[in-house]
């Protein structure tokens, strides 16, 4: 029996390409049964971190351990017990849906035509809502179906740990909801999961714990509720309308709060929203929306509002 406390632990992990330090001295650990999210804008270094975890990118420095195996040295044994959903689908276009599952099972040394595997594949087709498409070509699948098949494929070996790189990027809301639902079902089965995303809602709904990453560094870490509590005021009032500039210049209430301007909207972050709301109610040429602070506010505060391509 292996003895290790953390399913995944990385310590002082760094990676540079040419001059650019893409992952900069990060440390993390993920416990058994935990759903862990790596959040960050494009280019933050999420995929590079996952590739190092999988033993597919050699780190420049740092200590990496996954499922009790030293990585990259023992990555091949470790990969027997994980499932991977890569950022870009790499389903085998020469095979049908069911053949993709069978072929992938064979890479694990599993017998694709054994009774047990036949049954497992049936279950996975149901899980992925793809039973009707079992014989379909990959080309004929929608983006959401491909993603679900990739997820099903990642489960053929009944892995302890699932690693998903932006599992729902580019999907429509229905397709995304279905994937979320499936991932929550897997949680009930006791698996551990690491995912990267830049959707705050995804992180908030699925993850027990998050790390926010930017420019190769981890800039915050904690449960979604913790992060909101630690990094941001509990109330947000979004104000817009013709009188915005005048109000910002003259209001004594707003001048005591943290205000961020994004185009035509001012975001006012506050510990005590009552005076603001009552003042705003009396101004005719302003609209406003009062809500609780969420992860998106934390994310934007920590990573800035400029566009990342």
């Amino acid at each position: 029996m292996d003895t290790y406390t953390d399913i995944v632990s990385l310590d002082g992990l760094s990676k540079s390409y040419a001059e650019q330090c893409v992952v900069n001295n990060i440390s993390l650990s993920v416990k058994q049964g935990e759903y862990f999210g790596l959040l960050g804008p494009n280019g933050a270094g999420k995929t590079t971190t996952l590739r190092m975890l999988l033993g597919m990118t050699p780190p420049d420095s740092g200590v990496l351990n996954v499922l009790g195996h030293a990585i990259p040295e023992q990555a091949q044994q470790m990969r027997c017990n994980i499932g991977v959903v890569p950022q870009m689908d790499n389903l085998d276009p020469d095979f049908s849906v069911i053949e993709n599952l069978r072929t992938y099972a064979s890479y694990f040394g599993l017998k694709p035509h054994s009774a047990a595997m036949q049954q497992r594949i049936e279950e996975l087709l149901d899980f992925a809502n793809l039973r009707a498409k079992a014989e379909a070509t990959i080309e004929s699948l929608s983006g959401g179906m491909k993603r679900r098949l990739t997820l099903a494929r990642a489960l053929v070996n009944d892995p302890q740990l699932l690693i998903l790189d932006e599992p729902t990027t580019g999907l429509d809301p229905q397709a995304r909801q279905l994937i979320w639902q499936r991932l929550r079902e897997l949680k009930r089965a006791g698996r551990t999961l690491i995912l990267t995303t830049h959707y705050m809602e995804e992180a908030q709904r699925l993850c027990d714990r998050l790390a926010i990453m930017d420019h190769g560094r981890i800039i915050a870490e904690g449960t979604p509720a913790n992060l909101i509590e630690q990094h941001i005021e509990p109330h947000v009032i979004e104000v817009y309308g013709a009188g915005l500039n005048k109000w910002l210049d003259n209001s004594t209430v707003s001048s005591q709060e943290r205000v961020e301007r994004l185009g035509e909207t001012a975001f006012v972050y506050s510990h005590d929203e009552a005076p603001l709301v009552s003042e705003l109610c009396q101004i005719d040429d302003l609209q406003f929306l009062h809500r609780r602070a969420n992860l998106e506010d934390v994310f934007l505060k920590l990573t800035g509002r400029e566009l990342r391509e």
Binding site: L54, M56, Q76, Q77, R79, C80, I82, V84, P86, M88, N90, L91, D92, P93, Y104, Y107, F108, G109, N157
Partner: peptide
């Protein structure tokens, strides 16, 4: 083009 090998490398193959 198809990233077939990369797919295989996430299984326990080198």
């Amino acid at each position: 083009v198809q990233d077939t090998w990369i797919g295989m490398l996430t299984a326990p193959l080198s």
